[in-house]
């Protein structure tokens, strides 16, 4: 098992934080943005029987949440390998 230097540990944490920041921005936009604040605007678009804003609030945001977590799993596994801190 490798030891990270103070500097490496800090870079690992920064990369993790910037990844989180990007993903949580999407999390915020699809739920609070598309589902609540911008819902009236999006509702002017109709997809099938769904008004788009309503769809984001009751369906779409949840699908995006799942995708975000699995992308985070994938990207963090890559980051762990890059810094040699993966387990097993």
């Amino acid at each position: 098992m490798s030891k990270l230097s103070e500097d490496q540990a800090q870079r690992y944490w920064q990369r993790n934080r910037s990844l989180m920041f990007r993903l949580l921005s999407i999390w915020f936009v699809v739920s609070f943005g598309c589902g609540i604040v911008g819902v009236d605007l999006l509702n002017q678009v109709q997809i099938g029987g769904y008004k788009l804003g309503f769809w984001f609030a009751q369906q779409g945001s949840i699908f995006v949440f799942i995708a975000l977590i699995f992308y985070y799993v994938f990207a963090m596994a890559r980051l762990d390998r890059e810094f040699g801190v993966e387990e097993d």
Partner: peptide, 24 residues
């Protein structure tokens, strides 16, 4: 209807914060 979206987004969106900010 639409007002109930708070439960749908609220009770699922928490898992994104849990997965990134706390659980690992």
């Amino acid at each position: 209807g639409y007002g109930g979206s708070v439960f749908l987004m609220g009770w699922t969106g928490g898992y994104v914060i849990l997965a990134m900010l706390l659980a690992p």
